[in-house]
Design a protein around this nucleic acid. Structure first.
Lengths: 217, 217
DNA sequence: ATTATGAATTTTGAATACAAAATACATTTT
DNA sequence: AAAATGTATTTTGTATTCAAAATTCATAAT
């Protein structure tokens, strides 16, 4: 009677992923209007599933709906960025704590790998690559934590994505030469199952971004 | 050139509020399918804006889309409830801290008013009314905090709403006779601008719900 | 030359349309 | 009677349509 259910799917999620990707790699720029007809044509679909995807993104605050005027890629003020990082502080602190409790050997290897390429470099200049690594790092920790969370509630907040909309240096607030140390220490704490330290370090890491931001206000 | 813009609006948000309300007052029950045609007719609109609203609710996890099968009101397992409360712990802790910093005289009065009716009662039996007060209390704190957050990022998570989907006693996990004291102390701390204590008490309050929940697992 | 006006064009919000899939119901088979 | 099958009905996902609103662009007025 109940389903060993074949799971079907609809276009919503695929289109959502695509558009989100376009925002993340700056094919769609903050502040710019999203051309519905054009985009839909490019993807070979009608406006209906595109609008569905935009609704998701609107809810994630990655996109803004201006009624009768269309959808725009969200552009954050410094003040809003501070809010985003305050929320990240507590949420990713929780992620780090939980990740430390449930991480597997394999995931630990993955986590350690991300910043491997930068260990021997003493001045990091490729911001784009480092920004990608940074995001990957924070996302992976959220993913690991979310496995045991059973729901993937944490990622749906998507607060991490918002953070990279900062207008300079590929969304990086502090210089890679500084943050690389934070990242390595956090990774160590998580891999050593030291949940208390992991939470503490992650919070401090994000708090540093906040002080940096408030300086520019 | 730029707008002192008249702000227009569309049906999405109104329909969203309506459907959300129906879920909150249990006119639509957890696990039950949402009858689109019927609902749309009742509201005097087409399915288009209703579906838009359901997409929002899906993203908030208040509703679940089963492709080719429709939308269902979300039913949470105990494990998922624990996750929800872990997230509430850190997020509402942050809210309480910020609220304590920015609360006005007027808002303080409002906050103190919510549990006024229960001060003289020594056995609270109207769970429905108390549940409403409880939600109002947590929401108000989030609102106050969000004013200074500039974006209303915090409420959009809507994690608070999820919490009341718990299947017994109108979504209340601990008995009102116990929680009333927590609430009064939290309100006091916030009204006295004691942000540290406010955060600590709010966290403890939610942590108690978590232990209660884990007992039943 | 800038600013204002207004028609022409494009875009939006929402209803409607419709094929494909799911569900409900009746009928037949075991 | 229970299970399986087939048919009718309903519902879903997506495209299409269309009026109302916004934008663009050309022209006229200051």
């Amino acid at each position: 009677m109940e389903n060993l259910a074949i799971e079907y799917e609809n276009l919503d999620q695929k289109v959502y992923q695509l558009v989100k990707g376009m925002i993340e790699n700056r094919q769609l720029l903050p502040g710019k209007k999203i051309p519905q007809e054009k985009l839909a044509k490019e993807m070979g679909i009608s406006r209906t599933p595109l609008i569905a995807a935009l609704k998701f993104l609107e809810h994630e605050k990655l996109v803004e709906a201006k009624p009768r005027r269309g959808y725009y890629v969200r552009l954050f003020s410094i003040e809003e960025m501070v809010s985003i990082f305050e929320i990240r502080e507590v949420l990713e602190g929780l992620s780090a704590r939980r990740a430390a409790k449930v991480i597997t050997k394999d995931e630990a290897r993955q986590l350690q790998t991300i910043f491997q390429p930068y260990l021997s470099v003493d001045d990091i200049t490729d911001y784009q690559a480092y920004s990608r690594a940074d995001r990957q790092f924070h996302m992976l920790i959220a993913d690991i934590a979310s496995r045991e969370f059973l729901t993937s509630i944490l990622q749906t907040f998507n607060i991490i994505s918002l953070a990279y909309q900062y207008p300079t240096r590929e969304g990086l607030i502090r210089h890679p030469n500084e943050t690389i140390h934070d990242h390595l220490k956090i990774a160590d704490a998580i891999c050593n199952h030291d949940s208390e330290t992991a939470e503490k370090l992650m919070r401090e890491h994000l708090r540093s971004a906040i002080s940096e931001l408030t300086k520019t206000m």
